[in-house]
């Protein structure tokens, strides 16, 4: 464990908790893409199946459990509890256009052709594009609430910190995982446009509005 990965994980946890709290306290999921949250729940489910087969550390196991619980709680709030506030007119990104190619790629490019490893690879590839429905929704509505912007900033920042973590691990212990690195770079690049707008607008208290 290094500081980059730790801060990255905490940033990820903060994003997940922030979103869950925002939906719960405002009792509304307006502006939130349910599809992205479904994809994240799928990412955590397929990635953390090793919860039952390998124990890394208390931190690792507890974070996995928290991520999975929060992901399903968020999906539940969006599609069940506050579904009346779900903005399905703007959450129209075709998620199957992400899941199918990613599923195929996971079969073609992976470290080991075993069920757990293919599912892990699937989750790594899927996570890199899972935010697209949310970014697409914001570009359609033309704006995002500031809390949603903070959520996206923390979520995008976590994988950017992981890239630094991978650089650090490569130079300090010769460890690298090319699949995670490439997917992590793709994921972070997808946020660049948003990062620019966030830094130039939201920081100064303006509303974030993506070019429609």
């Amino acid at each position: 464990m290094n500081v980059f990965r730790l801060v990255g994980d905490l940033s990820h946890l903060l994003a997940i908790i922030m979103l869950l709290k925002k939906i719960w306290s405002s009792r509304s999921c307006a502006g939130i893409s349910g599809k992205s949250q479904l994809l994240f729940a799928l990412v955590f489910t397929t990635r953390y199946l090793d919860l039952f087969t390998s124990f890394i550390s208390v931190y690792n196991t507890s974070m996995k459990v928290i991520y999975i619980l929060c992901a399903y709680a968020t999906v539940y709030l969006i599609y069940v509890k506050f579904k009346a506030t779900y903005d399905h007119n703007h959450d129209t990104f075709r998620a199957e256009f992400l899941v199918v190619p990613v599923g195929g790629l996971a079969f073609l490019v992976n470290h080991d052709f075993t069920p757990l490893e293919i599912l892990w690879t699937f989750s790594i590839y899927l996570e890199s594009v899972a935010i697209m429905p949310q970014l697409f929704m914001i570009s359609k509505t033309g704006e995002a609430e500031s809390i949603t912007s903070h959520y996206l900033f923390c979520l995008g920042g976590y994988r950017a910190l992981y890239i630094i973590n991978w650089l650090y691990r490569f130079y300090s212990e010769g460890f690298f995982d090319l699949i995670a690195i490439v997917a992590g770079c793709v994921q972070t690049i997808l946020y660049c446009d948003f990062f620019y707008l966030y830094i130039t607008k939201v920081i100064y208290g303006q509303k974030l509005s993506l070019p429609a």
Partner: peptide
């Protein structure tokens, strides 16, 4: 290549 069989990252 330094790849581990168990993934120790979240």
């Amino acid at each position: 290549t330094g790849e581990t069989d168990t993934h120790d990252e979240l």
